[in-house]
Structure formats: structure tokens, C-alpha cells
Amino acid sequence: MLSPGVQLRANPFRMFKNQGIGVGLKPEYYDHFLSGPPSSVQWVEVISENFLRWKNGILASEPIQTLEKIRSHLPVRMHGVSMSIGSTDPLCPDYFRNLKEIVGRIQPEIVSDHLCWIGVDGQNLHDLLPLPYTEETVKWVSNRILQAQDMLGRRLVFENLSSYVEFEQSEMTEWEFVSEIAKRADCGLLLDINNVYVSGSNHKFNPLDYLKNVPHERVAQIHLAGHSVKPDGFLIDTHSHPVCDDVWKLYQWYIQKYGVQSTMVERDGNLPEWQELEAELIHIKKIQDVVNAREQSPAVAATI
């Protein structure tokens, strides 16, 4: 058990509570959750778009009912991929109306999306696309987040992207860009450490510089995931492999330095058996135990 001092150290000034360990829930794993959650999981994250009204405004009843059953056992966090907060198209009222309806029904702990754009001129490109890191983009995006938060009536959380290009016109680093938007929009940050690692490798920056300089008090959640390595060494954020050793090390470094926060593993491709995925959740717990033990006693930690 942590001493009160350690508890305080672990969560000194955060805007979002630590809910423990979660997982990105896929239909393939529903059976493990419907009759009660596995002990390794304290919350789940679902993709918001899988529960919205798309076709003819009809809400698919089976997915939402399944989610409600799971919600009766576990906290749910909703993670979107199509808010397109960085687009220069107007925010889509239908999307927000639909999202608000589902949010009202599921009552998720967190509603998040990505700091990106996904389309322009009314065209959805089905990808999370990067922005130039400029003052004007910061202003544009933070104003849009404020609007989005007003429409949904709650604080939103935005995830840092993995990116593959950088724009010549960028005036600041990605972590400066992310931090400035989070502060101006008064929103939360979903810190994806794999994305930091992938972008760091592709753009030749030190991931620790990134992790040191985000607004830690705004970190609502941490994502861990695997990536693919192309033959030329380029990294692609595919979520189709286990979390790599370097990302585990970065995670341990981050929570050692800034405290434990809600953490989950994302897996969207090459889905393994549940037990294999669960092993990664157990590994998160092990790292957190090491960090907590070091807080209490470096000597004890050495035995873990």
C-alpha cells in the first residue's frame, strides 16, 4: 500500500484521475467482458464512431446495447477518429449531435480524439493527417476545441499524432505545439508514447525531450501500442504488434518522473488471443509496481 505521501506524489496536480489500467476494446474480446471484467482491466476504451448513427440516422442497436452491458461493469472512455479538429472545414454539427447522444447514454469518463485533420472540402480521407506547427494553427485549433467543448458540454482530451511528414513552415516543435493548444483550449492530453517514439524516430528528435515538455497536469491518459518497421527503417504506427521495448522504457521513465496515470494498450491489427494482450496489461502493472516501490523504497524496488 502506498503511503499518503507517495499517493500525493503520484498525482500531485492532475486534472484527470488515475483509473488504473485499460485496454482498447475490440468486438473480438467482448466475450471476456460481458460476464464481468478480467481482473487485469479497470476500464476500457472504445472507438466512438463504432457507435454513432451513420446509415440513415439509424443507431445500430446491438453495438450500443453491448457497450451498455460492458459499461455496467467497467468505466468506459470514448476515443474518436473523425472530429477533424484541425480541418479548415466547419465542424460537423451532425457528428457532434450524434456524439453527444452516445456520450449521454454511455457516460464515459473521458471523450477524446486526435490533434489532426481528416479531410477538407467535405471529403473524409480516412486518415489522421498532420498539421503545420505554427502560431496561426495553434490559434485556429484551440478555438475549434473551445467550440467543440461548448457543443459537448465537457472538457475534451486530444491525442498527439504519429506523423510521417513535417512542414517547412512549422515555427515550433511538436511538443510546443501540443502544449500550447492544450493550455489555450483548456483541454486534456492523451499522451501516446508510441506515437512520440514513432515520430521521434521518423523526424530525428529525442522522445525524452517531448515527454519532458508536455503539460503533465493535463495528461488524462496514456496510450501504449506497437508499430511496424519498414525495410528502410521508417516507423509506421500500425497498432498491429506488441509494444516494443523502447516504448516500455519510455513509459517507465515517464511515470517514474511524473507519476502514474491511466494507461492502456491499443491493438487494432493482427489481434492476438486475449491472454496475449492481457499479458501486456499485466506488464503495465508490473512497471507501475516497480515505480511505486521505488517511491517507497529503492531497496525494495530492486527485488521486483
Binding site: L125, H126, D127, L129, Y164, V165, E166, F167, E168, Q169, N202, K204, D232, G233, F234, I236
Partner: peptide, 23 residues
């Protein structure tokens, strides 16, 4: 492509090909 940074390891075209891959 003229708006993107190039470097010795990966050209701007190589980098854009990742996004093209989604299409």
C-alpha cells in the same frame, strides 16, 4: 511536396507515400 521537409534519410515523397498508402 515543396511544403514538406526533406532529409538525407527520407525524401518528402517517401514520407507522403505513407499517407498515400491509406488511400
Amino acid at each position: 511536396l515543396a511544403e514538406l521537409k526533406n532529409d538525407s534519410d527520407y525524401s518528402a515523397a517517401r514520407r507522403m507515400s505513407v499517407y498515400r498508402g491509406t488511400i
